[in-house]
């Protein structure tokens, strides 16, 4: 059973990693979501067991470990919050750039940096000329 969980988590992580590498920002967000599911699955797999819910008075027979389920639930909640934040961020970025490509964002940055550097270099040349 643990092996099945491990394989599933591995597959999810792989799919997520593939999506994160894409250019489309929405796919990147989806990739992060899929990776977070891989983490949740791993948490559940960390204490796999069959049994009743461990609520007092305890039933006879096996009980399941509540802790790994509590951890999985918490990580789902936190994953939700981070996904929400990421979506808002992507929407704002899209809003500002009006494009959805990561590389376009990067190109824009490079261009901006180049102008900044040029201005800076110009400033220094002026200073040096003045110093002479």
């Amino acid at each position: 059973m643990t092996l099945i969980y491990a394989l599933a988590a591995g597959a999810l992580f792989g799919i997520g990693a593939y999506l994160v590498m894409r250019r489309d920002l929405l796919r990147v967000v989806l990739g992060v979501v899929v990776i977070s599911q891989a983490a949740t699955l791993t948490l559940m797999a960390s204490a796999l067991g069959f049994g009743a819910a461990p609520i007092y008075p305890l039933p006879s027979g096996a009980i399941s470990d509540p802790l790994s389920q509590a951890m999985a639930l918490t990580s789902v909640v936190i994953g939700l919050a981070t996904t929400a934040l990421l979506l808002v961020l992507v929407l704002r970025v899209v809003d500002v750039f009006r494009s959805q490509g990561l590389d376009e964002v990067a190109e824009d940055e490079v261009a901006q940096e180049a102008t900044l550097d040029a201005e800076h270099a110009l400033g220094h040349e002026d200073e040096e000329a003045a110093a002479r």
Partner: peptide, 12 residues
């Protein structure tokens, strides 16, 4: 709150 913000951002 989340849905509200996403909806507004998405609809501009």
């Amino acid at each position: 709150v989340l849905i509200h913000h996403l909806a507004r951002l998405a609809q501009g």
